[in-house]
């Protein structure tokens, strides 16, 4: 997984954009993430962290959604290159 360059969404630096590759969870959480429109190849941008560092706000399909690091950590993403 690491060699493919996937990282958990929770490690995506603020201001960077990434493409979703895998949802590493099941059950209710998976359903909830799917309902937010997070599927393979969804583009997500990390917008801002809350004052205490967690949760983080993400731009998901035009909506701003806050996710805790526990949930964001289950989403594996491939970051875009720096210039994008």
């Amino acid at each position: 997984m690491i060699d493919q360059g996937y990282i958990p969404l929770s490690s995506l630096p603020i201001g960077r954009t990434a493409r979703v590759k895998k949802l590493n969870c099941s059950g209710l959480l998976r359903r909830r993430l799917l309902d937010l429109g997070i599927i393979k190849d969804t583009v997500i941008e990390a917008l801002a962290k809350s004052p205490s560092g967690d949760p983080t706000a993400y731009n998901i399909r035009g909506a701003v959604i806050a996710l805790r690091s526990e949930e964001a950590g289950r989403i594996l993403v491939l970051p875009y290159r720096e210039e994008v």
Partner: peptide
């Protein structure tokens, strides 16, 4: 344990 949390921040 805390359950999952998703919160929308509206415009």
């Amino acid at each position: 344990v805390p359950s999952s949390f998703t919160l929308e921040l509206p415009p």
